[in-house]
Structures are given as C-alpha cells and as structure tokens.
Nucleic acid binder design. Sequence first.
DNA 1: TCTGGGGTCCTAGGACCC
DNA 2: TCTGGGGTCCTAGGACCC
Length: 420
Amino acid sequence: MWIALVDCNNFYVSCERLFKPALEHQPVVVLSNNDGCAIARSEEAKQLGVKMGTPEFMIDSIIKNKIVKCSSNYPLYGDLSSRVMKTLSSFVPQIEIYSIDEAFLDMTDMDIMGLHDTGVMIRNTVKKNIGIPVSVGIAPTKTLAKMANRYAKKMLREIGVFHASDEKIINQMLSYTRVEDIWGVGRQYAELLQRHGFLTAFDLKNAPEEWMRKNMTVQGQRLQNELKGIPSIEWQFVSKTKKNICTSRSFGKLLTDKTIIQQAVCDYTASCAFKLRKERTCAKSIAVFVQTNPHRKDDVQYVRSIIVQLPSPSNDTSVLIKQAIKGFNIIFKDGYKYMKCGVEVHGLVPETQVQLNLFELAETEKKKKLTKTLDTVNRSLGKNLVKYAVQSSENKYKLRADYLSKRFTTNFDEILEVNL
DNA sequence: TCTGGGGTCCTAGGACCC
DNA sequence: TCTGGGGTCCTAGGACCC
C-alpha cells in the first residue's frame, strides 16, 4: 500500500499571501483568536525566531516592525481549504481530509508514471489552480507518510516531494527523524523515550514491543507497527459524526460582571446548539466552565466546570440555554477576574433516535418550527442578529481582531467573525 | 497591559447489576 | 475468621493532534 500525505505549507500565511502578494518573502504571522498568539508563521518569521504559540506582545518585544501580523480569518481559510481538497480529490478515488490543511491520499493504484512524479504533478497542479504551495510525502503507512512529508519540507525544499520508496530509504528517514518529531509523540512521551535512550524514530521502531505496550499503551504499539511499515491506522474516508462539540473563547479583557459572562455562556450555548442541528444530533448533557487567567500569577485563581444532564436529549437553543444557566449559577463566584468561559455538549445521539413522551412531542414540534425560522433568518443575514433575550445584544466581551483581512471569497459578514 | 480553540482516543476507577 | 466475579456504563483525566 502507498499513502500520500499532502500538507499545505504554512497554510494560513499562504492564504493571506494569496490576496496580498506584497507579503511574499516577508516575515508574516497569523494570530489566534483575540490576537493572542502566533498560530501560523512564514519561513521568514520562523527564521526570526517566532515559535508556534508565541504571544503577540512577545513578538513585538523581539522584532517589532519587522513582521507583518494578520488576525485569523477562518471563513477565508475554510473556503480555500475546500478548493484544495477538491483538486486533490480529482487525482485519486478517495481522499481522507485530516485537517483544514492536510489530506491522506490512497496512492495504491496510482503508480503509473512513478509515485514521485505523481507527487510532483499533484504539487504543481494545486499551486497552479489554487495558488497554495503544498508538500507531499509518500510511504507505506500514514505515520511514515507524515514523516516523509516533513522530510520533504526540511530536506527537499525546492522539490517539495519525498517518496520513501524502499526499506533502505525508509530507515535513513527514520534515523534522521527524532522521536519528538514523530506524529503521535508529544512532549510527555518524547521525554519518557529520551530518558530510556530512544532518540530517533529508528530507535523506536526497534524498541522492545513489551516496553512500548507497557509505557505507551496500545497507541504505542500501533505507532511502532506503523514505523515498521504495517498499516495500523484505519482509513476514514467519510468523516465520523462528532462525539462532543465545544464553543469557548477568551474574553477581550478580564471580566468580573456576572451578567456579562452569563451572556457569553448563552451565546456559546446557542453556538453549540446550532452546530448540533447542523450535525443532526442531540446532546444528553451540557458542560459549562469558567476560568481566570493562569498566566497572572498575582491574581487569585479559580477554575470550575459542571456537567448538567438534560431532561431528554436536545439540540433546542432555549432548552440548552436554560440548563447552561442553571450550571453557570452553581459554578460562578463573585470576586474573581475571569478570562474565559466555554460550553461543551456531550453524549451526542442522532436526532432520529431521541425518544420523547407525547407531551414533550407536542411542545417540541412548536419549538422546532421556531428554531428553524431563527436559523434560516440568521443564515440569510450572514450573522446572528436574531437571538434569545438572555444572549448579548452588544459585545461587552468582544474579542480583539486588529489586523483582520477582508473575506475575499465568501459572503460571511464581519460581525459573525468577531461576535462569537 | 497582552499567552487560541476545537477535537480525538485511551485508561482507571466507581457505581451498579446479577 | 472467612467476605465473588464478571460485565457494563459513566466520568475524569491524561495524552495527543492541528
């Protein structure tokens, strides 16, 4: 089996550059929600020492005025992503979209002109059609394809394609790759592995199976098999239905006022309810959490969450808001400076599976019509103008987005972006 | 002054049932 | 004095991903 992992280079930065060619060859970062920290960096920005997750104020303190900052613009990235994915789909029978900027391609039947050349063709076509640069890694398993992709970026920058085509080449790649750079090995496991003398992916491939199982659970076993060239991660051509849905945000500034925070909780609940309806699922329970800013060492800290069971599974905004407020009232305490709150819905079941008694049924039909109308109106306006009374009518917890680019390819309204 | 948001999978341990 | 065992469901928490 041959698997390709196609990955857009510095995706968010590449999207911004597409519409602002002057950013080409400039150090550019894209900032997270709230303009909090860097979540995408151009090569030039990486060379200036900007790390993933560097807070904006630290970027300023090191290299003020040398770098272009963009607020993140998810509608734009989402639209370009689907165009890239559509182009990739034209090459192979099926692709697995792994994230906004990555997809796995089953290349097993593609070996007509040689897999390396096929990879080059894919890369050139995406660049020509969409304008986004991509890298391609081809190998016998997903984990090795990820590694090959990274190798292409690091070692074969100009070509941007690497085919790990036989055992000798794969072993070279494994020896080159340090454990902390393997897909599936995070900081904790990397430290553990290094302590035990496993430094490269090649070491890990040859580690005792017993040890892997004992210290890294079944995931470690799977990972080791993948490194040995035995595919152990299933294809996922159709996206699974979600198991949890979450909406949470940091506030633009620290908040103490219960009413304003409750409005945020209600807005995020409405957002979760909308996502549930889009997925055609209902939630069994809803969790609410609030927290202070852990980075402010001098402030008194408070973090709390609560799970509220719903009377019956629901995706109705008013039902969810009612329960969310109930939970919020239990966990909220005066006297703290809050930085963030969020809402998470759990135990999702298909809409069609929800059992109701007759009384509930009659009520639900009425509510469904109301909800459908609200969704339709809000969608056609391109923003959430129509709301329940407990939601916010103005942005008292508004997020910052000082460097926002225009929505070049979509009709989304500015307000949708900054409001939620 | 200023530090993201949205997910997944796995395991352990408790509650409960027979 | 001796005090089962297996199964399921749920939740919390850890680790990881982009």
